[in-house]
Design a protein around this nucleic acid. Structure first.
Lengths: 325, 325
DNA sequence: TTGAAAGCGATACCAA
DNA sequence: TTGGTATCGCTTTCAA
């Protein structure tokens, strides 16, 4: 390539890295040759020389889960705008793989974005020590992170239901060991207690559609008039089972989901849900990571994003109990 | 590192590449040192030396779309099993970016998986010439590809509706220029004609929820008793609008989706949908690509996977027309 | 079985 | 403004 343009490799390099450092006419010749040969500098070689790869790693538990997919998309978009590519690793919910993958990725990326709600803290710490990282949707002390605690939104949800006259709600927990499930449970309990709303808890459960369907009957039997599910998927399972039994939503029972994924907006009735700003989460995570790459000594920061209740058609006034007047 | 183990770099390299070529006791010493230092060979340097990266590129239009996310997941899993990492590029539905990205990726991966329903054929050809590639869910002559034509499933869908007594169906098309949308339209038209079912077409439309909602009214006004949507998302929009209008599904109108995504199974009523084996699509694509990497001279092959109708609760007997007896 | 040395394709420093 | 050269970390002949 250098030969083709009649210049040295150094000059070719400069043409791409610092174009203004080379005489316009030489540059033109080089670029012409590049065009002719379809030449593109090798990122690999460049990485080796520079010690930087121009790549960020993203570790998610399940890319087929809309929750993570939306984060991944935001990360992608943001990273690209900053001229970074993204290495995606899907751990398929295996915490061991998560760790192994992270270590493998660590060497070939400039920084790592880790979405790993269930990985244990020590390992997470180990990873962070090896490579600049940002943890997403989870708070780990001493590690920069971006979280959108569902507290606010869930408190709003309980207040919403309370205002509608519900006095007894069912709380459907998510996976055992899930950081967010625990936080969500706490938030609902606390808010309910403050407002004098009774809570019956179910779970922990795998946050799947069919477990939602299964637990719907239990919630009904317990006498709850409103159900707050760990996430939208479980809420949809509940909706489906209620419809099957002829229980009307929201006339007989109100249902609240969380995450406000595509599932919530496309359900009928559309699901009242706690919105987590997933795209902002992804964007902020990238920004935080890049900031960290620039200034490695900056103190680990935790960025907190607000969540909020989006009221849709699946919640309504509590049904009258007792005999009709 | 080599120094730490008291051996030459060559030997260290052999320990990882061809362990059996080194005396067990030396190997042990090297591995011990590696363990102690937390040493991992640099994939970057290795790529440069080998001319292979151990990485596959995956280009998708929208990773937040469950359809592509499921493919991506399957690709990930399969690639990892074969010791390949995956570079993910989300083009956000911009065909120009798709092309640019593909060219960028081309240099840093061993092969490319392209899911680009709307990229024009010439560019696709250009990409394929630069780097071993497999096109997914689209058929391009001279290029290895993996497709799951929805023909079979859609024919089954029309037959299903016909058997239920539907004589007039609405066909909702997807995006203009989308390869799969065209194929799907053809399939429905052809099957309907053969069975003597009337078809009213709507679209092309952006395959979104709200366009589905919008077109539901038109389909109803046209007198169709069954609606076949381009995909599940549009079908859900239709379901939502029908529910809003008090039109019962499947009593008054039957609705069929396509892709059989999570959306279809979690809808209520659950959506009858044409299943595309997305995971198999992803897996086969990886296999085909790796095969191609091994044997660059093998003729481009097109792998065809079957699609099938999954009947759920959103389809039922056609309503009686005219005055009740 | 091990070591020495060349090379992969770029960057960056120092000279010219 | 350009060219020469060492370097990044690993693989791979070729010798020892």
């Amino acid at each position: 390539m250098a030969a083709q343009a009649g210049v040295s490799p150094s000059t070719v390099s400069r043409c791409f890295a610092t174009p203004h450092q080379v005489r316009p006419e030489t540059r033109a010749r080089v670029l012409a040759a590049a065009e002719r040969l379809g030449y593109r500098p090798s990122r690999i070689a460049r990485s080796l020389a520079l010690g930087r790869t121009g790549t960020l790693g993203l570790i998610v538990p399940d890319i087929a889960n809309p929750f993570f997919a939306v984060i991944a998309k935001a990360v992608q978009a943001r990273a690209r705008r900053k001229d970074y590519a993204v290495f995606l690793a899907d751990t398929d919910e295996h915490p061991d793989d998560e760790y192994e993958l992270a270590l493998t990725l660590a060497r070939q990326v400039d920084g790592l974005l880790v979405v790993a709600p269930r990985m244990d803290g020590d390992r997470l710490g180990e990873i962070v020590r090896q490579v600049p990282s940002v943890v997403v949707n989870r708070s780990v002390s001493g590690v920069p992170s971006v979280v959108a605690p569902s507290e606010d939104g869930l408190r709003q949800a309980v207040a919403h239901l309370h205002a509608l006259g519900h006095a007894h709600l069912a709380l459907i927990l998510g996976a055992r060991n899930s950081w967010s499930s625990e936080k969500r449970g706490q938030a609902v309990r606390r808010a309910a207690q403050q407002l004098g709303v009774a809570v019956t808890e179910f779970g922990p459960h795998e946050p799947k559609f069919h477990t939602g369907a299964q637990v719907a009957d239990l919630a009904l039997a317990a006498g709850a008039t409103a159900i707050v599910a760990h996430n939208d998927l479980m809420a949809l399972g509940i909706l489906a089972r209620l419809a099957e039994r002829g229980v009307r939503v929201p006339d007989d029972v109100s249902v609240v989901g969380a995450d406000d994924t595509l599932l919530a907006t496309t359900a009928s009735p559309a699901l009242t849900s706690v919105r987590i700003p997933l795209d902002a989460l992804g964007r902020q995570a990238v920004d935080l990571l890049l900031h960290r790459l620039d200034q490695p000594e900056s103190p680990p920061r935790e960025t907190v994003l607000p969540s909020e209740l989006i009221v849709r058609r699946s919640t309504g006034p509590a049904p009258r109990t007792g005999p009709a007047p």
